[in-house]
Every structure is written in structure tokens, then in C-alpha cells.
Design a protein around this nucleic acid. Sequence first.
RNA 1: GCGGGCGUGGCGGAAUGGCAGACGCGCUGGACUUAGGAUCCAGUGCCGCAAGGCGUGGGGGUUCAACUCCCCCCGCCCGCACCA
Length: 806
Amino acid sequence: MARKYQPKEFEAKWQRTWEEQQLYRTDDSFDRVKLYCLDFFPYPSGSGLSVGHGHNYIPTDVYSRFKRMQGFNVLHPMGWDAFGLPAENEAILRKVPPQVNTAKNIANYKRQLALMGLSYDWTKEINSTDPGYYHWTQWFFLLLYHRGLAYRAVGSQWWCPECKTILANEQVENGFCWRHTTTRVQKKDLEQWYFKITAYADQLLNDLDTIDWPERIVAMQRNWIGRSEGAEVTFTVEGSGDPIVVFTTRPDTLFGATFMVLSPEHPLVETITTPEHSAEVSAYQEQARVISEIDRLSTEREKTGVFTGAFAINPVNDERIPIWIADYVLMGYGTGAIMAVPAHDQRDFEFARKYGIEIRLVFMEPNSRLTAEQMTEAAAHGGTMINSRQFDGFVEGPETVDKFISWLEATGKGARKVNYRVRDWLISRQRYWGAPIPIVYCDQHGIVPVPEEQLPVVLPEILDYEPSGTGRSPLANVPEFVNTTCPICGGPARRETDTMDGFACSSWYFLRFPNPDLQDRPFDPDRANYWLPVDVYVGGAEHAVMHLLYARFWTKVMADAGLVTFREPFRKLRNQGMIYGADGQKMSKSRGNVVTPDDVVERYGADALRCYELFMGPFELDNAWDNDGPKGQFRFLNRVWELAHAARSEDSPETLRLLHQTIHDLSERFEDFRFNTAVAKLHELVNGLEKNGCSDSTLDTLLLLLAPVAPHLAEELWRERHPSQGSVHTQAWPPFDPARLQVETCAVVVQVNGKLRDTIQVAMNLPQEEVERLARSSERVQRFLDGKHVRKVIYVPNKLLNLVAG
RNA sequence: GCGGGCGUGGCGGAAUGGCAGACGCGCUGGACUUAGGAUCCAGUGCCGCAAGGCGUGGGGGUUCAACUCCCCCCGCCCGCACCA
């Protein structure tokens, strides 16, 4: 009785062998063309991996294996983003120190990754929570600090009551915490550390044009950065003469400004409000504060506001206009104050109508008789300027805006200004499980950075690390940690007790993989400049404006500091689609629809799992897991097994053509991340070999083609056939021979008036007249030509003949 | 509202402007089996006995030829959103 295809009999064996022989160890010399293929490094969660993770890691593994066989020097590493709130929360829940819990989770992740046959070079493994790693995260903090890009400031910031810490803007989604999608964030005034990402806004925007990333992610980053061009215009408060600066993208409507609005949080509100309005204003401010916590985000809400009693002078015409406060003006954008032009801005229009403020048109279609009283909404674009003195008659458009700004500048009333939506990256976290911020506070010297040679500032192992919710990190309760000496004067000093946002760790980790154990530097410049930038970076789309923006920012800082020679860390980015449960819902423990690699490997083996993950749909598209899916791939692998153990035969010309077509198509598809059709091509090859015969050499080639996709089966059969040649994974990718695609005959489709009527078999490159003669002689074609005159003939050589008859 | 994406059999999906539905799941029938949730073989877009006709969200257009290109419309998903 012949052996059956039973993956369990050999998959674990080969995984062990590969690991023992360090088969996937990266070559540390620089003499070959390199390829750096990187997965987003994961947070090792206690629930382990699901097949959703496989949908990320398996394709990159296939790609790495393919490129290795093609002769590239491939770096394909894995590490652990193990700091951060989820890890800490999980540890608290399980009442285990995070160090211990994290180590346990990592071990489980590694076991599962090995189970899927992933070819990581484990000598390159890194862990962001190792002091040897976060030493350098802290070093980068100092780099930013010394370059004026890390600063401390008081601000009203988003606080998640569940996380009990401050969050960065990027980590708040529609007013909810990104970790706790049902938890509203609140505003809290705290002194915090920021990284000045805004200094790089333009570069971060412009360099998006230089990288090969999904349109969607590029668009999200563009939106997030939110560049808008316009002008700053200075109004003055009547009486006190206090300036109020506003940003506007439409300075050309300045003559139509009939009131101003300050954000309720605007610092000037207190000073300008007149005594008779102060009660009302304070009440509104209080209300706005509460609403901002509950629901300030709905666009549907009717606009509200109150008059401050103060007036401003419009610099272009010296008109006196009322100053209001309203919560539709946000302190966090622009200057927190606007000039309101109700005739041409819908929000201002609604506000003006509600409170009976004048509406004055400054643009109008030449023949229109529109009056402000008739308007039901802000006027549409188009027209020429009116009510605007020397600008009357100017046509609406960028040129007019430009001229208007030049005039503002010439007269000192305003200045050209580019405004950004992005704000500086708030990195302080009032939590224990993170890299300590390397700063001490001295009574004499104030804020003092920890000198490089005193790094790392080690996170102490403590028993009580639960967040208090007071706005102070648990580290504040650890006197041994807090109390230190000033690096400058040696006097008593206190350490910063906040830790860094976990995204700091992931902003440079790709530089650490080439040299994970380096003691005296974060990375070796020669190695960094050889291996980086990352050639292919793969992960989920959820990090579009978090990790992916931060890492780009750090890279630019490093480039400016002369540490690296590239300005973008990730040359090509691809997002794998989300895998939903068989019920179409997001996989989650509570829904009970989680499928793990363990489940599938147990039943069908790792190779079938791999094939199905690749095959189930386009790499970047979402898909629902089909429990029967791996079965089809098991059948396919089983047929390979049977084919390998069947009697060999001569290759037919058809077999050779198919084989070389497959080599060609597969190479192309792997390169383009079209794994689903790549697997389909392998299916077609095996179908063809079963039908048309398969020689020994063709079978060997099949195993080589199969190696990236089904590494265990390919290895088992290869070693069986070639006991002395070593692993199939150290063999070269088979060469493609275009000459083999030549065949003697081809099928030509015959159409009459564009409709398929017959298919004829003809000799390759037969002259058109001959093909046409053969086609016309076909009974099936004649039937449709009957009584008609062929007016035109279209011939696509060796493919199609269309007879146009009428 | 702005931005990105998508609409093809029962399902996942495939098609440099050139045979729509590759490949697979499922289903139907058969073989082998004590048995099958194993394996193998055949069939499987819809209507029709057939010849043939109809079919890629809908409507127009370009073309000898359109899932593919252009215009309009409908629907769904995702991201951002009172951004001045």
C-alpha cells in the first residue's frame, strides 16, 4: 500500500530541520542585491494568532521564499511590539507582571508562526520591551529633543478614562478611544511631551509622491496632514486694540465679513467680553466644555453661540463687526478664531440667519438679481466681486485670491499663510508599561535630558503598576525611580514618570532588524544603508495615520541628522484584506467565530492552510473565512503527492508549453502580490500534467514552483527524489524559456459580427488569407454568412478573426 | 459634504479592448467502499428538447469587438468630517 499524503507525518519534521540548520538565516555580507520584506511587527496578544494574521504573514513568506530562490539576499525578520496598553491591561487582568505575560505570549506566537511554516530569520528577532532595545528608543527621544523637536507644553488633551491616559489625536476616532470603541474620550488639561511632527508637515505631504503605497493610505495621510493655503488676517478689538488673527482660505471675501467668531476656549474671550455679557458668555463656555465631552462632533447639530459685547475692526474697510463665540469654531484648528462671511459660507450663513446678523454678498453672477434677503443658503461659487471697492469686477478664482493676498501683504493687513490640520504628536502616557521618557527635573536647571551615557533609563519592575487615573503614571509612586540626581549639578532631581507612546518604539524598529544585538549604537549605518529602505512592507490599513506617519517622520529626522541616506522608510506598502469569520462578522472570542492556524493545520496541514490563505481572494481585499476552503487546497496538494508517486512519462509539447507558461505567470504574479491567481496557475499546471504527462525533470520543476507556497510538501518530495541535494528551499527558481511557449498550432476564434460562431485549429502564423479561407469553409460560420456580404475582416494573428457582414 | 474602493453564477473569485465565468467551494450524478464529512470521474451562468437566444448594478456613447474606455444614474463598503 503506497503512502498517502499525510502532512502531519512530515511538516513538523521539516520545520525542526529548517530551524536547526538555520536555513533562513540572512546573509550578512553586502555583495548581493538585497530585499527587505517586512511585516508590521505585532503586539503579541494573549489570544494568539488567528487565520487573519496568516493572511498577512503567509503572503510575505511566499514572497520572501520566492525572492530567495531568485538569488536575492532577503531580510525577512519578526519582532515584538510588546509595550503598550493592551499588554499592560492583559497583565493586570491576569494578575501577572507584564514582563512575564509578554514572554509567555511571545512563545505562543513563535510556536504558531512556526506551525505555518514561516521562514523568519529568528537570529534577527527583536523585542521593544528589552532594555537593550528601548535604550535606543530613548536615544532617539534625545535626538529629537536636541534638535528642538521634543518639547513639553500644557494643553487640553484627549484623555481615555478606560486607558487612564492621554492619547494622541491620531488615536482618537470620532470622539472614541481607538482601543475602546465604546469609550468617549474627555478633555483634560495636562503638561505633556510632544514631538514636533508639524515641522515636517510639508515634507510628509510632498514625499508621498515618491513612494509606492496604496492610494487609500496616501489619501488618508494627505487628509490628515490637511494642508490648506490662504492668508492670516489681523483684526483688532475695538477699544483695547488687541489683535485677533484669523486664518482664511478665502481672503478675497474679506469685504463680506460681517462678524467674527472665537472658539469658546479662545484666550481672548475673557479679556474682550463686556461686563453685561460675561454671565452669558461664561455659561456658554461651560456648556461648550460639557458638550465637547459628550457630542460636539455632529454636523447635524444646530449652530449656537453668544455675543461677547465686543466689536472688531475689519482691516480692509474699518467696519465695526460684532465678536461672537460659538462651538463650531475649534480651538485646535487655525487660530481658533474666524472671520465670518455668511453670504459665502454655509456655516456662517446658518449662524447669521439664526442670530439676525447681516449677510452681505461679495460675489455675484453678472446677471443675477439675488439679494441677501432671498438667500436660503450660502451663495454658490462663481461670479465676480461686488461691494469690495477696488476689487469689484474681479472674477472668482485662484488668481483673484492671489492678488488679494498680495494687496493684504502690501498694506500690512495680512500675510500669505499655509495652515495644517495635523498637530504635534503627543507622546506622554500616564502608564507603567512603556519606555520611560529620559528626562529629569532639577530645581536648579529645570528640564534636563538624561545624558546618552546614562541610558537606558530602566523601567523598574514593580508590583503595583495599575493606573490610578489621577493623571500620573504609577511610576510616580516609586521613590527609587523618581528620586535621582541632576546630570548637570548633581543635586537632587526628579525623573519624568510618564512613559512614551508605544508608537515611538515602532517608529524605528525597521532599523534594528539588520543588527538586533548592537550594543553601542541603535544601528550600524553601513548595514542600514544597505538594507533600507524596506522594499516591501505589509500590514493592515488601520495604521494609516498612526504608525505609518510617525515612522516616516522619524526617518526624516534621522536623514536630517545625517544618520541615514534615505528619507522614506518603506518604499512599497501593501495592506492585506481583513479576514472575517465564516458568519461574515469580525472574528472575536465573544462571537465564537475565531479560526486559528492550529485548527486548520490540525485538520488539513500547514500547506493547505497556506494555499487557501493565498487563494481565497485578492490579497488586499477583505474576505470571509470559508471552513471548507482549505479542503480544496488539500485535494490539490494530494494530487501533487499522487502525481509525484505515479509513473513518469515523456513530456508532451503541450506539457512543456504549460510548464514554461506557468513559470512565467507565477513569477509575475508573485512579484505583483497576485497570490490568488498564482495558486490557480499551479492548479492548472497540475491539472495539465495529470492529463498530458510529466517527466522527471518537469516534476522537479513543479516542486520548485511549489516550494514558496507549499514548503513542506515540496521539501518532502524533493528530498525523497534527491536525497543528496539538500533543501528544495536552497535551489534556484527555475528559468523561463520563451522558446518553449512556441507551439505548432493555435486555436483561432471565428466571429461573425462580433459573435462567436466557431473555433478553428490552424498552424501558427498562418497567413490571414488562409485563416479566412478556412473560417469561411466552416459550416457553422457559413450558416451566419448566408446571403450576406462580408464588408470587413478583422484579424488578430493566431487569436481571432471577425467577419463583419451585412 | 470631501476622499478612497467596490458592484460578474448559489458562494469566493478570473479575464494586456479580442472565446465572460479561469481556479476553487458548494451542488447533482456516477465509481470505489461495511461506511464516508476520504478519494476519483462527469456535469454545473440563465431560458430552451434543440437550433439558438439572453447575460458582468441601470441608461446612453465610442468600437468590427466593451466586465474592461467615455458620460449620466443607482446601490454598497471604508476613511475623514462644523478644518474656516
